[in-house]
């Protein structure tokens, strides 16, 4: 498969993988640690959504599905499928627990992207596409415009019934 096309497809898949899993696991509902709350309120102060801000804060403060997706892609590239993804899921779980997070989002993200990498490898997608794709996906959430991204995340949280009740 053409590399550029593969990276674009991988970026889209990675974006949906980590955003949907993190939202489903309740990242927009509560800040897991104090740092996530500070980030969420700062994003809201700049015109963003509080729920989206909590989401952004939580993925900064502990390895959630975003880190799981990236690490499982790196593991699959460096070690192979499925060992790389399974080892990444295990390490992400311990990383989560060390960061005051029960670990569901990170572990689920790592396992789901490992399955996706395996399935899409049959049509020529390589694990390295997912590494670059995940970096691009996370840039759209954390690297371009926090308030705009947080509003999108807030709307998604609303639709999935995971919007914060905090004010």
């Amino acid at each position: 498969m053409n590399e550029v096309l593969g990276i674009i497809i991988a970026a889209i898949i990675c974006w949906f993988n980590f955003v949907l899993i993190d939202t489903w696991m309740g990242l927009p509902e509560n800040p897991g640690v104090k740092g996530a709350e500070v980030i969420g309120r700062a994003v809201k102060k700049r015109g963003g959504s509080l729920a989206g801000g909590f989401f952004q804060g939580n993925i900064v403060c502990s390895p959630d599905a975003s880190a799981g997706t990236l690490l499982a892609s790196v593991g699959s590239y460096a070690i192979g499928i499925p060992e790389g993804g399974l080892i990444a899921a295990t390490l992400v779980y311990f990383g989560n627990r060390l960061c005051a997070d029960p670990g569901y989002a990170g572990t689920t993200g790592a396992l789901s992207i490992t399955l996706i990498i395996y399935l899409t490898s049959m049509v020529g997608m390589k694990p390295e596409f997912y590494i670059v794709g995940m970096v691009l996906a996370i840039i759209t959430i954390q690297g371009l415009a926090h308030p705009t991204a947080s509003r999108l995340l807030g709307k998604l949280a609303q639709k999935m019934g995971r919007h914060t009740k905090m004010t």
């Binding site: 309740g26 060992e83 399974l86 080892i87 899921a89 295990t90 779980y93 029960p102 569901y104 572990t107």
Partner: peptide, 24 residues
């Protein structure tokens, strides 16, 4: 709600860790 639970259960994380440890 499972997403906030800190309980150690059979499915999570025991089953997942067994796969991860064997892969290591």
């Amino acid at each position: 709600p499972m997403r906030y639970s800190w309980s150690i259960s059979v499915i999570f994380p025991t089953a997942i860790l067994s796969l991860g440890f064997y892969a290591m």
